[in-house]
């Protein structure tokens, strides 16, 4: 047997061993050491090189190196193959049921009415309105008299009132903020553009459609050149913001002592899209808010020159909006704070 044959033998046997190896550990710790290590077969075999004639030695040396390289590559390839296999097995064993319920993140929910109020606030802030909130315990003077509702006015019957004393009451509307801001506003500094959200109170027995406490948002714009067309445009912008652009808006005459002309604003019924159903009592329309041009008496009583200044005001009920938008059928749900109800809104 020549040295070359020995080397070939080592290569053949080595390749078989490498191929049949089962683990990276065996490859590196055993096979690699046995074949290529300091005391490995190739090194040992090459000791016989000294018996060769000097001129043959370089050739045999490089032959031995080529075998070393072949084995080295074979080991590396096999190691990579085995590593991949081992990883795949590990990954396979780590498989989980991704449909199992998640770990819950703890979070609270905003109240649906607050969401609507915030949405209205943001819209009007963007149009340069102030947001002001007035007292919930109000003077009769602001709640009624300065809103053009003197003591014997029949429209007072439309709003049953919680009185605290003869002159102090739970405000029945956010409209007194019209009087309060008109009284204070300095028109030489520019127009009055204000909305005022808040709670209001009526002496009503609570039932699915009545609540002794509910929300209102008042809006008022007073300047030298504010028109009914401005009111219409403003309301249309708001309705589109709150309900989307699928709805028609209808203004119809109404009566509020503090506006003249007064209108009530209807939008296409959500449920039937105008065809007529039980929600809209067959009319195809749903009333969403009241508005009008601020009554000259209201301006005068607040000390504003009604010949020079005028404008519009509107009042809407977020409770009603929420009921319409989400199909809530009982207004009391907003104040009972049942978590199963509240947590549906995000």
């Amino acid at each position: 047997m020549s040295l070359k044959d020995d080397l070939n033998q080592i290569k053949e046997n080595g390749l078989v061993k490498i191929e049949s190896s089962k683990s990276v550990k065996e490859l590196n710790d055993q096979i690699r050491v046995d074949l290529l290590g300091k005391k490995g077969l190739i090194t040992q075999t090459l000791r016989g090189i000294s018996n060769l004639p000097v001129e043959e030695r370089p050739e045999m040396g490089s032959y031995a190196n080529s075998i070393r390289d072949t084995l080295q590559v074979a080991i590396d390839n096999k190691a990579q193959e085995l590593e991949e296999k081992e990883l795949n097995e590990k990954l396979k064993s780590e498989k989980i049921d991704v449909t199992l319920p998640e770990n819950k993140v703890i979070k609270g929910h905003p109240h649906v009415i607050q969401q609507i109020v915030d949405q209205i606030d943001d819209l009007f802030l963007g149009m340069g309105y102030e947001v002001l909130s007035g007292p919930e315990v109000e003077e009769d003077v602001y709640n009624f008299e300065m809103m053009n509702l003197p003591k014997d006015h029949p429209a007072r019957d439309m709003q049953d009132t919680f009185y605290i004393t003869d002159e102090i009451l739970m405000r029945t509307q956010t409209s007194p903020m019209q009087a309060r801001t008109l009284e204070k506003h300095d028109f030489s500094k520019g127009p009055l553009k204000m909305i005022s959200p808040g709670l209001v109170y009526r002496r009503d027995t609570d039932d699915p459609t009545h609540s002794h406490q509910f929300h209102q948002v008042e809006g008022i714009v007073i300047d030298e050149n504010i028109t009914m067309a401005d009111l219409k445009g403003t309301l249309e912008v708001m309705i589109e913001e709150l309900f989307g652009d699928k709805f028609d808006v209808r203004l119809r005459p109404s009566y509020f002592p503090f506006t003249e002309p007064s209108v009530e604003v209807d939008i296409t019924c959500f449920k039937c899209m105008g065809k007529g159903c039980s929600v809209c009592k067959g009319s195809g329309w749903i009333e969403v808010l009241g508005a009008g041009m601020v009554h000259p008496n209201v301006l005068k009583m607040a000390g504003v020159d009604a010949n020079e200044y005028g404008g519009f005001a509107f009042g809407l009920g977020p409770d009603r909006f929420a009921m319409l938008k989400y199909g809530v059928t009982d207004i009391r749900d907003f104040y009972l704070n049942d978590l199963r109800f509240l947590s549906q809104f995000n």
Binding site: L125, G126, M127, G128, I226, E236, V237
Partner: peptide
């Protein structure tokens, strides 16, 4: 307005001196 018809009145937005809308 009502006999002429509210539907027939235009839609505009108020044009006033610039005002700032911001929360306190």
């Amino acid at each position: 307005a009502r006999i002429y018809g509210y539907d027939n009145i235009g839609s505009t937005l108020p044009t006033t001196k610039m005002t700032q809308g911001k929360l306190s």
